[in-house]
Design a protein around this nucleic acid. Structure first.
Lengths: 250, 250
DNA sequence: CGTTCCCTTGAGACCGCTCAAAGACCGTGG
DNA sequence: CCACGGTCTTTGAGCGGTCTCAAGGGAACG
């Protein structure tokens, strides 16, 4: 709720910097004018700022243009579960548009900019452009796959495997977006975020991170992750290999 | 793979018994002929039969017409995580249609019948019928909400809360479909299925079930669940109330 | 230069695990 | 019809992974 502002200056979809990334394959790329017609503005949020409030009515959909955010749910007694992380190109808020009220909150981890779309126009855009409809469904289905894997993590991976998986997942996701340099990635989250993602306490998360460092496949200090031996990390994490196929961008 | 057969006799969508259930609201109900055109047949599966094989290429989409099924993932060492359960009206296989290979398996718990749709025609049906496209997206988004809640369960609910939540969730889902009678529901799964859903061992699942029975809000024997005090169960489960709005049926 | 937030470390408690075995239920075949 | 084997549920014992509580150190910031 704090530090949220709406900017008059917006990036034209045709000049969207994300469009040139290989992961958003040219063949699958929606015409920029279609997205432009759907887009109504941009939202700028500071670290810790709320993008979507838990249990509130959501009137917008978003695509992350830059920055990190995370989706979460909380209990009244303060327990928090982070559901997943959003990076540039991720489409947010769809769940809410199908029911009336948000089931989760979304918070920015870094300074972030999001493209804003009107939820009440979703249907008319579906009717007008089948490719847009298909792309949104594609993204929703892809999101399901990610959530499936998070469920497997929480249900059946040990603490060490969970940490390894999360770090590899974030690394791989960031690499697709060319956010890594020489196997290095700056992670904006605190250990308390990792703990709330992993279903562990902060203390045990810390101890498990240290154990993982001793395994030798990663280095992690000053909030910079370095993947030293990706194969070893993936084996530890029991990664179920999925090829990164080009994905749509709304 | 065993006990799978394709029947020549199929139910006409116009006469689909699910269409008269209140949860599939009339206003949101897709024209029967649209679904009929998309449907290519029915699949009958016996208990324990495979509907979708993990890591195989999927060429079909399904709607459960009758019976119970579950989605799961396994590790090489045998650990299994059940991701969620499918009941009549649930739409299956979408994740796989967006990538090449199934990330999960689907297995029948009871004798089941599924409507079969061709995955390679999905795009052309999207282009031909915006309502169908919208409905499929709706279902995908709704599924995400369910998965979010499962992530919260595994990450932040205690064993007792988890069991309470799962039983309430199944009860509520079945009630929408008029599968309950006087607060009673026949559950087809074994305790090992519950354990693999809850991220617990079978032994601890058993002990937790007993503790829950002693709490008094449920009875459970002979595979019949009876919800004695739904409010107490929901409080125990820390249910985040969501109204059951009418949903589409493909 | 103090305050605050975060990471780290240690100690002890507890939740959920594994191992083991007995009882209950069911289908099958003698 | 009964004996048997297999699967599922239940129970007990002991271990260990993860938790909570507590305190110290380091870095950032006003």
């Amino acid at each position: 709720m704090n530090a949220v502002s709406q900017s008059a200056m917006t990036i034209a979809c045709a000049k969207c910097p994300l469009r040139s990334l290989p992961i958003f394959g040219e063949r699958t790329l929606l015409d920029a004018s279609t997205v432009q017609a759907f887009k109504i503005g941009e939202l700028t949020v500071a670290p810790g700022g709320t993008i979507l409030l838990e249990h509130a009515r959501a009137s917008h959909l978003f695509t992350v243009l830059s920055g990190w955010a995370f989706r979460y749910k909380t209990f009244e007694d303060g327990r928090r579960q982070i559901i997943n992380y959003a990076l540039p190109g991720d489409f947010l808020g769809l769940q809410a548009s199908m029911s009336e009220v948000m089931g989760h909150g979304i918070e920015a981890l870094t300074d972030s900019v999001l493209c804003v779309f009107p939820r009440d126009k979703l249907w008319s855009f579906f009717a007008a452009d089948a490719q847009l409809a298909y792309d949104i469904t594609w993204l929703a289905a892809s999101q399901e796959r990610t959530l499936d894997e998070q469920i497997v993590s929480l249900g059946r991976r040990t603490a060490l495997e969970r940490v390894a998986y999360l770090l590899w997942y974030l690394f791989d996701k960031a690499r697709e977006l060319s956010m890594t340099k020489r196997n290095r990635l700056d992670l904006p989250m605190r250990q308390s975020h990792l703990a709330d993602t992993l279903g562990l306490s902060v203390v045990h998360t810390n101890k498990t991170l240290q154990k993982l460092r001793k395994e030798g496949s990663i280095e992690l200090d000053e909030r910079t992750l370095r993947v030293v031996d990706e194969e070893a990390l993936k084996n530890l994490a029991r990664v179920d290999e999925v090829e990164n196929i080009p994905r749509p961008l709304i």
